[in-house]
Amino acid sequence: MSRPIDILFLGDIILDVPDPDHWLSGIAEVTRGADLVIGHLEVPHTLRGEELEGDVPAPGAEPAHLAALARANIGMLSMAGNHIADCGAIGIADTNAELDRLGIAHAGADADLSRARRPAIVARDGRRIALLSYNCVGPEISWAAESRAGSAYVRVRAADGGPSRPQADLVEADPASVAQMQADIAAARQEADILVVALHKGITHRPAALAPYERPLAHAAIEAGADVVVGHHAHITRGIEFHRGRPIFHGLGNGCVVTHALTPAQDHPARAEWAERRKTMFGFEPDPAYPLAPFHPEAVNGLIGRCRIHPGGRIETGFLPIWFAPPGRPVIPEEPKGAAIADYIDRIGILAGLPPLARGRSAGSWVEIVEA
């Protein structure tokens, strides 16, 4: 343990169109230079399975596309999310089997709840890095159970008392479910030198906003022993804060999302209806230049999170601004666009009520951040 190690964090990843290496190529030079890259795999990679009812289902992606993640040095994936069970137990099993074959560690979705709650652990330079992954947005049918495949989860109460689902007004995490998450964290802490907790959480397609449960839940993870908390699901970048000196990336936005599943012109009734309904729900019209990533106009502003872990445990936190070029490919922007995206990250955190951050020195395009 003679040197710092760099861990990078990517948000949602969906690669269900051809040539996955092309879509990752705009950031691959950066990811290949890290000791470890952790991303979130949004959909199952399978050619089998039955469509899950209860949410707007995502199609299964080509299993062969996962190899592009390995080629880009993405070595660890969180998988607990609202779409990972969309092709049923077979879809999860096929995805896990291919990730195992490729040597990509994964956490958060498995054949039953006990296995879904297990940490993934990898070693880098003599240090053990553990990842736990939880779905905080439902739908409940996608959650794993004692004898049902699905994702690990934290139950979050809906304001109307209805079931937990992505389109609900989710307001408060269930105390018993939080306690279970904290017990998992405490147990994983005993096995790891560095512990990352991934939370699939938040309000989709809305700039800046954090749901009432998000900060308390992230804080609870830190208080139980997490070194870093990362969030995803909103498909738009969120702010960053520190709690007890540990970083929380409230929303990493899209890591690399290229999919036909959200385009308005398609023959799947549920997906076509959702493509229209979300315009009204979230008040935006997708830019036609982004047919593979038809998200909120502000979602073109993105980031790659970074934590540099020193041998004594000190963490330097920063991020690299990224931009999504049409039709949805992440790239490292030239200046002054990179500086404008860094300013955007600052601004949305303040608008969401997060404490202001101070920027430290920057190396190249990387932005170092510290508590103000």
Rank of each mutant, 00 (worst) to 15 (best):
I92G: 01
L69I: 08
I90L: 14
A89Y: 02
E53Y: 12
S78H: 09
L41P: 05
A89M: 04
I74H: 08
L47P: 00
A58Y: 15
A61Y: 06
P59Q: 11
T46C: 03
G49C: 01
E53F: 03
P44K: 15
A85D: 02
S78N: 09
E51N: 05
D55G: 12
L66K: 13
I90A: 14
G88L: 01
H45P: 01
H83I: 06
V56M: 11
G49P: 01
P57L: 09
A67M: 08
A58M: 14
G49H: 02
G88E: 04
V56L: 08
H83R: 08
E42S: 02
A68I: 07
G60K: 09
H45F: 14
T46W: 03
A89G: 01
G91Y: 02
I74C: 05
P44L: 13
P63R: 12
E53S: 13
G91V: 02
A80Q: 07
G75E: 04
H40A: 12
T46G: 03
M79R: 14
P44D: 02
E51D: 03
N73M: 09
E42L: 06
H40Q: 06
I92Q: 00
L47E: 12
S78C: 13
L47M: 10
P44Q: 06
P57A: 07
G54N: 09
R71I: 06
E53G: 07
T46S: 08
L77R: 05
I84D: 03
R48F: 07
P59D: 14
H45E: 04
I74S: 02
A67V: 04
E53V: 10
G49W: 01
R71K: 15
G75L: 01
C87G: 00
N82L: 09
E50T: 11
I84N: 07
G60E: 07
L77T: 11
A61G: 14
E42G: 03
H40R: 08
L47W: 05
M79Y: 05
D55T: 13
N82A: 14
G49K: 01
A85L: 09
E62L: 13
I84A: 13
V43N: 11
V56G: 11
C87T: 10
N73K: 14
V43T: 10
H40V: 12
P59G: 10
L47A: 07
A72E: 10
P44A: 04
M79T: 06
A61F: 04
L77D: 12
L66F: 08
L77M: 11
L69P: 02
A80V: 06
L47N: 06
H40W: 13
I92P: 01
L77V: 09
